[in-house]
């Protein structure tokens, strides 16, 4: 598996307006609309929400990692959403989420999916990088952080 930058793009980074977690997920998932990543955004959003209902992906430290594997996902990828005001994600530490990393994978990309999630989690566990990303002013800045982090 290559660098994290191979799985995202500046287009997939968004500063979120929604403060509700489901709306935030939908807002962020829409960055894949019209791309070759996902051919059915509606189904993707539904899958993300369904997964979120089973158990929160708000893992604490102001981060949430919603994810879903779906037949209509053609390329494994992730999007990043930044919320300056914070989103109530029912996180395990009870704190609001300021960064949402949304992972999309195809039904058959099981191993790559786990590897990508592992890589993302490893990056986010680095306090400095995490804080830098949350405080980033632009998508370009986040891309640079990812580039430097590899």
């Amino acid at each position: 598996m290559g660098s994290l930058l191979d799985f995202t793009d500046i287009k997939y980074i968004k500063f979120l307006k929604s403060r509700n977690k489901y709306k935030a997920i939908e807002e962020l998932a829409r960055v894949f609309k019209g791309t070759d990543i996902c051919s059915d955004i509606k189904a993707f959003v539904a899958a993300l929400k369904e997964r979120e209902e089973i158990m929160t992906t708000g893992i604490g430290f102001g981060i949430a990692v919603p994810h879903a594997k779906l037949e209509s996902i053609h390329k494994i990828a992730f999007a990043i959403g930044i919320s300056k005001k914070g989103i109530d994600f029912n996180s395990i530490d009870g704190r609001p989420v300021h960064m949402v990393v949304l992972v999309a994978a195809g039904e058959r990309q099981h191993k790559d999916y786990l590897k990508l999630l592992s890589k993302i989690m490893s990056l986010l566990k680095n306090d400095t990088i995490r804080v830098e990303m949350i405080n980033a002013k632009s998508a370009k800045e986040i891309i640079n952080i990812l580039r430097n982090a590899k």
Partner: peptide, 24 residues
């Protein structure tokens, strides 16, 4: 076989549930 990655990487254990590693 499908969860080797999950076994070697402790990072994702807290994030995932059984549903996430299901083969449909």
């Amino acid at each position: 076989n499908e969860v080797r990655q999950a076994l070697i990487s402790s990072n994702i254990v807290e994030l995932l549930i059984c549903q996430d590693i299901v083969i449909h």
